[in-house]
């Protein structure tokens, strides 16, 4: 695809994520078709498309929440196979933020953030808490550290979820419709957090319909339909001159043209 060639050259020789010919089947239903996607270190990708187009499935394959059926996925050079060790190793390097936040209700904000670093990375409590304090401060919610998730607003919860993922010091962050479950007035605080993360050079793949965010942050916008990548390009071209009819139709609907 011409648009793919126009994307910026990778910062390092080894891509952060390399998907080659990835397919995903649910029984007889083909959810992903021949996905080829290379993401360079530090690159920001926005994935969009109609519901059921496979964008969530795609990013969930990257941390093996969905096992893929064919093809190959490499994360920072590691081939993502079926053995637990490799999967756990990849998951430690890949942070994920979910639509429904999925904070642990029985743990305080602080405990949400220190659980995995202590249990999975083997950090001591003091060390894990120091990391958590720094990242909670960064998402501007350190003053709520001793509260439980149910005591926070949706936007606050999602910012905690971002901090929780960052506490593992991931190399990549996956966002699965992070603002879709939020009341409109809380969308901005989450997007601002994501923008600041992008500015700091994090490699990000975001499934989102926030096209303003895509324009501002994305190096590439990828449009999916029917489980396949239809079109991709730099946001300037992608929004100004989409090549495919399906892309035009989707953008028309979502941007209200």
């Amino acid at each position: 695809m011409a648009a793919a060639n126009a994307s910026p050259a990778p910062a390092s020789a080894q891509p952060m994520i390399a998907m080659r010919g990835v397919e995903k089947w649910y029984g007889d239903y083909k959810a992903l078709t021949d996905i080829n996607l290379t993401v360079a270190s530090g690159e920001k990708i926005v994935l969009c498309g109609p519901s059921g187009s496979g964008k969530s499935t795609l990013i969930r394959c990257i941390n093996h929440l969905e096992p893929y059926s064919a093809g190959e996925i490499r994360v920072d050079g590691t081939l993502l196979g079926d053995d637990r060790k490799t999967i756990d190793a990849v998951r430690r390097e890949v942070g994920m933020v979910f639509q429904q936040f999925n904070l642990f209700p029985h743990l305080t904000v602080m405990q949400n953030c220190t659980l995995a670093p202590m249990r999975s990375r083997g950090l001591g409590k003091a060390q894990a808490e120091a990391v958590a304090r720094r990242l909670l401060d960064r998402v501007k919610i350190l003053d709520q550290a001793d509260k439980f998730p149910a005591q926070l607003s949706g936007g606050q919860q999602q910012r905690v979820a971002i901090a929780r993922a960052l506490c593992m010091k991931p190399k990549v962050m996956l966002f699965d419709e992070p603002t879709s479950a939020l009341d409109p007035e809380m969308v901005k605080e989450v997007l601002d957090t994501m923008i600041s993360l992008a500015e700091d050079g994090m490699t990000m793949i975001c499934v989102t319909h926030e096209m303003g965010f895509a324009r501002q942050v994305a190096d590439r916008v990828i449009f999916m339909a029917g489980g396949a990548i239809v079109e991709e390009g730099h946001p300037a071209e992608f929004f100004k001159a989409p090549k495919h009819e399906r892309t035009r139709k989707f953008l028309g609907e979502i941007l209200g043209h």
Partner: peptide, 14 residues
């Protein structure tokens, strides 16, 4: 909820 389990797995917990 399944989301709780997925969040734990995604953080590298077994």
């Amino acid at each position: 909820g399944k989301g709780q389990i997925e969040a734990g797995l995604a953080l590298g917990l077994h």
